[in-house]
């Protein structure tokens, strides 16, 4: 029978391990071209851009959101953390907007490389990555966990 001290130590150990695991998670990185002139975005701004409610960057430029390929787990993780939604719900959301002639969904890349290419070519492009971005790409927001 473990003593209370041992139990407490174990609990503390689990807690630390748990925190370490969370801390070690780099999160989903919302990125832009460093030439965009945008230093950072807020969560609300990222939501407005990716859900098509308001696609203006803080410097007045139009924002061009880019989605990772649909078969990449990163896309699901991004929306899970951004608005706590599954991809099926995101598709339902866009079905409503697209078929009522509202705004268009983010541009769908076919490969992760295409995301980087579009980021490099368009100063207003906003995308997300789960690895350290290459040079010329700036992290403007870190999505660490679901809201």
């Amino acid at each position: 029978m473990p003593t209370p001290i041992v139990l407490l130590t174990r609990l503390l150990l689990f807690w630390l391990l748990g925190t370490t695991v969370l801390w070690a998670d780099p999160g989903v990185l919302v990125v832009m071209n460093s030439a965009s002139g945008v230093e950072s975005l807020t969560r609300d701004q990222v939501v407005n851009i990716f859900l098509g409610r308001f696609r203006q960057l803080p410097n007045g430029m139009p924002a061009l959101p880019i989605d990772q390929p649909a078969d990449q787990p990163l896309k699901a993780t991004f929306y899970q953390r951004l608005v706590n939604k599954q991809l099926a719900e995101i598709r339902a959301y866009w079905a409503r907007l697209v078929f009522s002639g509202k705004t268009t969904p983010p541009r769908q890349a076919e490969t992760p490389e295409q995301v980087l290419q579009w980021l490099a070519e368009n100063p207003g492009a906003v995308a997300y990555l789960d690895t350290d971005p290459p040079s010329q790409v700036r992290i403007v927001f870190v999505l660490s966990a679901a809201p």
Binding site: R91, A92, Y93, A95, R96, L97, F99, S100, G101
Partner: peptide
């Protein structure tokens, strides 16, 4: 701005009430 044939927007769902997948 939009011009042409448009869906009516009386209420929140009224512009897309035909799209069952969306609700």
């Amino acid at each position: 701005l939009r011009a042409g044939r448009l869906g009516t927007e009386f209420y929140m769902l009224a512009d897309s009430r035909l799209v069952g997948y969306s609700y």
